[in-house]
Structure formats: C-alpha cells, structure tokens
C-alpha cells in the first residue's frame, strides 16, 4: 500500500484542529471543485483534497490514519501489526488496496451510498456506484451511431463490504443523436450493487474529434463556403459536401461575406427523430496571384463600377456631427 500524506495534501499542520482543517478544505474546494474550476488538473487535485478531508474531518478515521505513522508520499508501507484489529471490523489485506478504499471501508460508505443504502435482514444493502468516462468519437460515428469499447479501473465492494480496484471493460452502443458535450446514461452498467441494491449507471461524456471541414454546435454543423467575387455577385450553383454526400447549393446573386446559407436537415441526427441543419458561411476569396487577363478584367470593373461599399462612413460621420 502506498502512503499519502493527507496533511501535506491539505497544507495543514499535523496538529491542526478540525475547524482549521475544515476551513482549509473549503478554500481548496472552492478553487478546485470540478463543477466550478476550469483548471484541467482541478478534478484530480480535488479528488486528493476530498479524500484527505474525508479522513481528517472524522476523529475516528483521523486517529486511525495517524496510527499508520508518517512516511514519504508514494512510499510502500505496512500498517502496524494490530492496526486492522484495532480500527477495522474485519481482517484487512493491505497489499492490493488504496489508502482511500481502506478508510472508506472503516466507517460509512460515502455519498454514493445515498438514501437507498441500509441494512435489511442483517445484509448491508447498497446501490452500486455511478461511473463516468469520456468517449471520443468522430463526426461520422456520431452521425451513424457507433459501438465503442471502454476500459475502466473502478472501485467495487466485495461481499464483505471491502473495496477493491477492478478492471472492467464495456462495449457500449452510442446511438445516432450524439453530439459534442452530450451525456449518455447506460442504465445499470456502473458498479455492482451489494445486498440486493441496484447496480449503478455508467455515464458517457461524448467528445467529438475536431473535423477538418465542419464545426459543431448542438446538432447543427457550420461549414466555411469560399466563393469567388463573381460567384457572390452574379449567383452560382456550387457543390457542397455534407455528411451523406455532396449536394448542389444555389447561391443567390448579391451574396455577401459572412452570410449563412442554410441546408435544412443536413446536420447531425437528433436523438429520437429529426436532424440539425448545415450552415454554409460565405467567405469571399480573391485570387492572390492574377493573370494578365484577370488583372485587365478587374481593372475594367473598377473603372466602370460606381459601387462604393464605404459610402455609409461619410453619411454616419455627417449624421454624428
């Protein structure tokens, strides 16, 4: 078993009183709580802080922790010979166990026990833990649906109420309807319940790989549509790629840069029924290198046109004055 210095994690002295520990925990929790913090390392940091606090706030657990002695963080160690008998109600095996699991097993079962936990006919009834994992999929997989294989190392209680880390592998079907940031609940695929308690759920956080062409917002897709100045001015029919193959899009005459052309129901499928839309955002692109002929034609246009895209500058300045 590897030692963790809970006092060092919280940044308190070993003789700090409970109020000081609580105050420090709250300050750190405000900073690192994953539902508040945007720090990518915040979640791991908060887990450490919460684990340390769960043990140090409880006088019984803190006394048991202190009896383990002081070691270097990460150092392999064995508790004193009579430690298990003194603080536990069962024979502990210290080899294949995490310090957090050891203390979780000492008293209570933490918040995951929930309102449904309890003893019935002498058997401890407790629902299984919920698990959460991120599933990275492509836009194409989101569009068609996909089956992903997920590997998790999770804590599970055995029949004697002891926690162990176990490897679990899931094959999960992600149906059509996925999009970035969406959450999928897989009922009953979390931790096993004990004593007849229901199994927990598995939550998949969907993360879409960035696509070279499309940007995603909900179930809508956005695509940059480069047009030549003459296509924008005169109108054109252009080929646009969609998730299910190319389509022809009519660009009306007088189209301007930034205009959104909507292709209805060409976005991602929504859960249940329907699809999002695909928006082609017009960009007017000019050739950076001109042939002599192109230069002559542009010059002729410049000489013959009365179009002034900055006419409103003067009007607005006059109006303001």
């Amino acid at each position: 078993m590897k030692y963790k210095d809970y006092y060092q994690i919280l940044g308190v002295e070993r003789d700090a009183d409970t109020d000081a520990i609580k105050k420090t925990y709250r300050r750190l929790a405000h900073k690192y709580h994953p539902d508040v913090s945007k720090d990518p390392a915040g979640e791991e940091k908060f887990k450490e802080i919460a684990e340390a606090y769960q043990t140090l706030k409880d006088p019984e657990k803190r006394a048991a922790y202190d009896q383990l002695g002081q070691h270097r963080p990460g150092q392999e160690f064995q508790p004193p010979p009579d430690w298990g008998r003194q603080f536990g109600d069962t024979q502990f095996s210290f080899d294949d166990i995490d310090l957090a699991d050891l203390f979780a097993g000492l008293a209570g079962r933490g918040r995951h026990a929930g309102p449904h936990a309890g003893r019935q006919d002498g058997v401890f009834r407790m629902p299984g833990q919920d698990y959460e994992v991120t599933a990275h999929i492509t836009l194409d997989e989101a569009s068609r649906g996909a089956t992903v294989e997920l590997n998790l190392t999770v804590p599970e209680y055995d029949e004697r109420g002891r926690l162990h880390r176990v490897e679990r592998s899931f094959k999960a079907r992600i149906p059509k309807g996925a999009t970035d940031g969406q959450r999928l609940r897989l009922r009953g695929k979390g931790g096993k319940g004990t004593g007849g308690g229901p199994d927990g759920d598995l939550y998949l956080n969907i993360a879409l790989h960035p696509h070279a062409l499309y940007r995603v917002s909900g179930h809508d897709l956005y695509l940059d549509l480069p047009l030549t100045p003459w296509e924008a001015a005169l109108g054109a029919v252009v080929e646009v790629p969609t998730l299910v193959g190319p389509v022809h899009l009519k660009v009306p005459p007088g189209t301007h840069a930034g205009q959104k052309l909507r292709l209805a129901r060409r976005g991602l499928p929504k859960p249940g029924a329907g699809e999002g839309d695909l928006y082609a955002i017009v960009q007017i692109v000019v050739p950076t290198v001109l042939s002599e002929r192109e230069r002559a034609l542009f010059k002729e246009l410049a000489d013959g046109s009365t179009f002034n895209p900055r006419g409103h500058f003067e009007r607005e300045i006059r109006h303001e004055a």
Partner: peptide, 10 residues
C-alpha cells in the same frame, strides 16, 4: 464485454 441500454440526458 457487456451490451448496455442507453438514454440521452438532454
């Protein structure tokens, strides 16, 4: 490997 039921939370 287990096959799971699913539900979108949206």
């Amino acid at each position: 490997l287990e096959q799971a039921d699913e539900m979108w939370l949206d």
